[in-house]
Simulated scan of single mutants.
Amino acid sequence: MDLRQLEQFVAVADTRSFSRAAERLFMAQPPLSVAIRKLEDEVGVALFDRGPRGVMLTAAGQAALGAAVRCLASARDVAIAAQAAANGETGTLRVGFIGSLTFSLLPTLIQHFRGDHPQVRLELSESTNEGLLGMIESKAHDVAFVREPTTHPAHLTFMTVADDVFCVAMPAHHPLARQRKVRLKDLRDQDFIGYTPSRVGGLHAAVMHLLHDANLSVKVAQEAVQVQTVVGLVRSGLGIALVPSINAEFMPNDVVFRPIADLPASSRIGIALAYHEQNANPVLPRFVRNIQDTLQLESRRR
């Protein structure tokens, strides 16, 4: 039997009439009668008692009716599920992010998306810029939040989601902590906590570019990969560091953050959403649009 036969059976059962069922199904009555006979032959029992006043379900037909209705509903669910997945309303999205983003922007963006798309499963994982870009290129991740500046492979799309600037992180007892703002020349010959070099750029490249343009030499005492690790080393009294200002309000109280008064415009940093231009995951366009809408909403609130 097929779904068409079940639809015909349910129509006859509902209307108790072959003629009225045929009208509902937009078909002639004789072919409908033949189809029901074939269905009865297939199941091996009579489904209807046929009489001058119409047709009535037999006991077997009554039992079959419930099963037929459920079967048709399940078939509709199959179509609905397939359409929802094709439209990106359901499915899975693999999202990578840099660790320092968990203190600021990421929770807001993820909460908004989950609120609007509760049937989408998000798989989140933390890594470095280099690791994230590699996973986007290999399509092990669908999308990633990466720190800028970074390399931009031609086949990847980058969408800026946050602009930022460097500020100076220092122990609370540091002499520069008494100043409301710090000038770049104040950093000269300071013990410095830097970032581990990466082949894709990132914060190490941005800091080195800034120091070079300012003709500053610093004594790099330690290096670390993540912003929170750098701040932890500052907290330990090992030196000062340049860190993204977006993270400052989420860091320990015994670390002081000061803006840089003469920071050149060319030293701007930020966060970008990166994804492969050939990624066919139908959830991805919905995620990108949702991020854009959330950022616009947050901008209006400010």
Rank of each mutant, 00 (worst) to 15 (best):
M251K: 02
R20T: 08
R301H: 14
R188F: 12
F250V: 06
S33M: 14
A85M: 13
I193N: 03
L124K: 05
I98R: 09
S127H: 08
Q292H: 15
N87V: 06
S17K: 12
A172I: 10
R289S: 14
E123M: 11
T92P: 06
K219N: 15
G239C: 06
Q228E: 15
F9P: 05
A82R: 15
T102S: 14
V225S: 05
L93G: 05
D213V: 13
Q278A: 13
S217N: 14
V227G: 03
E148I: 11
A46V: 00
F113S: 01
V69C: 12
M27F: 08
R24D: 09
L216A: 08
E7F: 07
Q296P: 07
P31L: 10
G239W: 02
A82D: 15
R70K: 15
A177Q: 03
R286H: 09
R302L: 12
V10G: 10
I260K: 10
L39I: 04
F18G: 03
R286Y: 07
D213N: 14
L132F: 06
Q29D: 10
L39R: 02
R50G: 01
L176R: 12
T90L: 10
S125W: 09
V95Q: 02
R199S: 14
D116N: 14
P31A: 11
F192D: 06
A73V: 11
R24A: 13
G66Q: 13
V146K: 07
T58Q: 01
T294W: 06
L284D: 07
L65H: 05
A82T: 14
D293M: 10
T92C: 12
N253F: 09
L203K: 03
L156T: 11
V220Y: 07
G61Y: 01
A22I: 09
Y195K: 00
V256Y: 09
T151Y: 10
L132T: 03
H276P: 06
T157L: 12
V283E: 00
D142T: 07
G202Q: 03
V231A: 05
P107C: 06
G131V: 04
Q222T: 07
A79M: 14
P264I: 06
E40D: 00
L122R: 06
Q222P: 07
A82G: 10
Y195P: 04
Q226C: 12
T102G: 03
A248S: 09
V256H: 05
